[in-house]
């Protein structure tokens, strides 16, 4: 069987890049194998667990069920893109540490990117809305409790408020 390749041009974490990829490759494969962005995690590879979540033009997608070639011309952000060039964590990453929302760390990258999408909406959501928006991610360590606290706390802070749990 002949393998077809295609050049994909896109912007990853603020940098314009291009690479020739197997047309059958998923975006997960491309980000991990071609760009060494290993924060993109594989938990099911069929869009069930959310570990491979990335932002494509500001919107979250399961990169495992998104073909690499569809990334042509897109702006992609992985967890590696959230840290500042000086190595400073973003507010939501810091909140995950403060609220003990990280255990094994495998679902963490995906959750952080969905949290970023929620927080970038720059508005307050109800608890139920937050839970629903975060429900595309599975976690077996945390019971979601502290992840919820970290996201809610950061949402409040971005609105200039503090929350006391």
């Amino acid at each position: 069987m002949s393998v077809q390749y295609k050049v994909v041009h896109c912007n990853i974490n603020g940098r314009a890049v291009e690479r020739t990829v197997d047309v059958r490759a998923s975006l997960t494969d491309m980000l991990r194998n071609d760009y060494s962005l290993t924060a993109v995690k594989k938990g099911c590879e069929v869009g069930e667990c959310g570990a491979c979540t990335v932002l494509i033009d500001g919107e979250t997608f399961n990169s495992c069920i998104y073909l690499a070639i569809w990334a042509e011309g897109k702006h992609i952000v992985t967890l590696e893109g959230l840290i500042s060039p000086e190595g400073e964590l973003s507010d939501i990453q810091q909140a995950f540490i403060e609220e003990t929302a990280i255990q094994c760390g495998f679902c963490t990258p995906g959750f952080l990117l969905t949290a970023k999408e929620i927080l970038d909406a720059d508005r307050m959501f109800t608890d139920d809305e937050l839970r629903k928006m975060l429900s595309g991610h599975l976690c077996r360590c945390t019971g979601y409790e502290n992840i919820f606290r970290a996201v809610k706390k950061t949402m409040y802070r971005r609105q200039g408020k503090e929350i006391d749990f």
Binding site: T38, K41, T100, I102
Partner: peptide, 21 residues
């Protein structure tokens, strides 16, 4: 004491290496 995990920064930054990484 409720100190932060020793591996929290790297896990929050996505730098932690698992077997496949």
């Amino acid at each position: 004491q409720s100190v932060a995990r020793v591996d929290a920064f790297d896990k929050a930054a996505g730098r932690t290496k698992y077997y496949e990484d």
